[in-house]
């Protein structure tokens, strides 16, 4: 520790003020704790960032943390940063964390989430007009089950994620019922169950997600999002209803403990600069969930072959 410090001082003196920060990296040997939540995509986003931080000389610890509880943990550096917060399902916890004054938002991750209606191969067979949403109008009974008959069934997001599908189904004049799934596990069990039974399925789902690596799901073509279509009946395809267009795309944020700026300034800057795109995450997700690869090896490979992408973040952070 002492040795490194003195070396840094000498280097700093030699290279001038701009290099001083770099020379001091890592500012502290205390581990930076990155939150690991419950899904593969997040594991990838977190481990990529963590491994980059390690190349900078930081100590990194991956802490398992619940999606909501981690917000509490970031207030006192029990978790230093979390890198994949979806605007669609974090709810009030996001605002509450910012309001505490101890947690800050550090920019978009860069993943582009698509949340909309998907259908499976069996649905395409029984309702050949798909992917156009208009085809659903004549296909309600294809998607019906005992609980919804004669209406079709749209397997929906859990009620606590907040969903607008009841309004949307009305807006598109579809004779469908929204059946909230209750959890991500239930959504996936529905998707896999329908696949095993070769049954048509219409489901509210999102991308990037590992299940696309295992099951063929196609997007329903909805009329594109227009500003005002959720509030103003005259906007959108149905002149008499609101919610008659596709979703406005959401965003994915990175967040950190406020004290990070002072404790590990370079790491903080690196995480601010850090982005991961669909094109990066999805192939890694496939390698893990489809081909059975290990998270650590998959991430290490990405790090090794994508230096051009992440080296600039490190450089900008240490300048």
């Amino acid at each position: 520790m002492k040795n490194r410090m003195s070396k840094g001082l000498i280097l700093g003196a030699m290279l001038g003020a701009s290099a001083q920060a770099m020379a001091a990296v890592p500012e502290s040997d205390e581990p930076i704790k990155l939150a690991v939540n419950e899904w593969t995509g997040q594991h990838i986003s977190t481990h990529v960032a963590g491994e980059i931080l390690k190349t900078m000389g930081y100590n990194v610890e991956y802490v398992t943390a619940g999606y909501y509880p981690q917000m509490q943990a970031m207030e006192d550096n029990t978790v230093s940063a979390t890198l994949e917060i979806w605007s669609s399902n974090i709810g009030e916890h996001y605002d509450n964390a910012l309001a505490s004054g101890k947690v800050v938002e550090i920019g978009d991750l860069g993943l582009e989430p698509v949340e909309s209606w998907y259908f499976n191969a069996a649905a395409k067979e029984k309702c050949p007009g798909l992917p156009s949403y208009e085809a659903l109008k004549g296909c309600a009974e294809v998607f019906a089950n005992a609980e919804t008959f004669p209406q079709g069934r749209l397997v929906d997001y859990p009620a606590d994620w907040g969903t607008t599908n009841v309004d949307r189904l009305k807006g598109f004049e579809l004779d469908f019922t929204s059946a909230p799934a209750g959890s991500e596990g239930a959504l996936i069990a529905e998707i896999q169950g329908a696949e095993a039974r070769q049954e048509p399925l219409l489901v509210m789902f999102w991308q990037p997600h590992w299940v696309h690596a295992v099951v063929d799901l196609e997007l329903v073509e909805l009329p594109p999002y227009e500003d005002g279509c959720n509030e103003d009946a005259s906007v959108g395809v149905n002149p008499n209803a609101t919610w008659d267009c596709d979703w406005q795309r959401g965003y994915i944020k990175k967040m950190a403990w406020k004290g990070m700026q002072d404790k590990w300034p370079a790491a903080y800057k690196m995480l601010q600069a850090y982005t991961l795109e669909n094109g990066d995450q999805i192939p890694m997700m496939n390698q893990i969930d489809k081909e059975g690869g290990k998270l650590e090896t998959v991430v290490a490979e990405w790090i090794a072959s994508n230096e051009a992408k992440w080296k600039p973040w490190v450089e900008s952070a240490t300048q």
Binding site: Y68, N89, G91, E92, H93, N96, P158, A159, D160, W161, G162, A179, P180, A181, G182, S183, G185, A186
Partner: peptide
């Protein structure tokens, strides 16, 4: 059971949890 889509008080608990 709220996790598998049953409605009722269980669901209310989750809705409250997500809205903190």
């Amino acid at each position: 059971t709220a996790l598998v889509g049953s409605k009722g008080l269980g669901q209310s608990v989750y809705i409250a949890l997500s809205s903190a």
